[in-house]
Amino acid sequence: MTVPYTGGCQCGQIRYEIWAEPLTLYACHCQECQKQSSSAFGMSMPVPRDAVVILQGKPKQWQRVSDSGREVSCLFCEECGTRLFHNPARNSKITNVKPGTLDDTSWLMPVGNLWTRSAQKWVVMSEQMLNYEAQPSDFTQLFEQFQTE
């Protein structure tokens, strides 16, 4: 895949483009991601925040505190509820795109798992991936691993 990456919400009210390559892609097994995804985990694809362009619609935003104790702004479609982006307060240069909202998801290949200590018991973690019991203090390995894939 090459830029721009395109995506949107389920109902089509919000459409976006990403004009930079992703920095990494990982699955998060924290309880908040399980709730927001209504599944066993959520996925995050960090990109430079200024590379995200909203083409249509306006996401609604609300704040929450993550399992790591950090503030996160969550952006979603007010009409259908699709979670689109997370903007971490700790890094104003990054937006975590929820990659299931991309138009083409065929190329997605996470390189790591975060918060494995709260993963559902039936989820099998690959030893080929970077696995963290909680939030890593440094994402360098996740970025480097993604660049080599």
Rank of each mutant, 00 (worst) to 15 (best):
L23Y: 06
M43K: 04
E144I: 00
R64I: 01
W115C: 09
G81L: 05
R15P: 09
C9M: 11
E127W: 06
L25C: 12
W122P: 11
P88V: 07
E21I: 00
C77W: 04
A134L: 08
E17C: 10
V72P: 04
Y5L: 15
T2G: 04
N96A: 10
R49Y: 08
S37A: 13
V3A: 14
R49K: 14
T6K: 15
L130W: 05
L102R: 02
N96F: 12
C74K: 08
Y5K: 01
G69D: 07
S68E: 12
S39M: 06
L142F: 10
E71C: 05
R83K: 08
L84K: 02
Q141M: 03
I94L: 15
S68N: 14
Q36F: 13
I18F: 04
M125P: 08
V72M: 14
C74V: 15
P59Q: 09
T140R: 03
F146P: 08
V47Q: 06
I18A: 09
N91H: 07
G8T: 13
C11D: 12
A119W: 00
T82S: 15
Q145C: 12
T95F: 02
I18P: 08
P136E: 03
P136F: 00
S37I: 03
C80K: 11
D50E: 15
T116N: 04
F85L: 09
C11Y: 14
Q36P: 00
M1A: 13
L84Q: 01
R15W: 08
G8I: 13
R117P: 01
W115D: 07
V53P: 07
S73M: 06
T105D: 00
H86Q: 12
L84I: 10
E149R: 14
C77M: 09
V124G: 01
K98E: 07
C30A: 09
N87D: 08
L130I: 14
P99S: 03
N96P: 00
A134M: 09
Q10K: 11
T2I: 07
I54H: 03
G12Q: 07
T140P: 00
E17R: 15
Y26F: 14
W122G: 01
I54F: 09
H29D: 01
Y5H: 07
T95I: 10
A51H: 03
H86S: 06
P22I: 11
T6H: 13
L114N: 13
C33V: 06
Q145S: 11
V123T: 13
G12S: 05
E17S: 15
S66L: 04
T105Y: 01
R64C: 02
G69F: 11
L142S: 10
H29K: 00
M1K: 10
M109T: 09
K121R: 12
S137W: 01
C80A: 12
T95E: 08
S66C: 10
C28K: 11
Q34I: 05
E71H: 09
V53G: 02
M45L: 15
M43C: 08
A119T: 02
G112Q: 10
W107L: 01
S118T: 15
V72L: 13
P4D: 10
Q135P: 04
D138L: 03
Q61R: 15
K35S: 03
Q128T: 14
T140N: 03
Q120I: 03
E71W: 10
I54V: 15
R15A: 14
L102W: 05
V124M: 02
T105P: 05
W19R: 14
S37N: 07
V111M: 08
S37K: 01
E133W: 05
C80R: 10
C33S: 13
Y5N: 03
V123I: 14
L75Q: 14
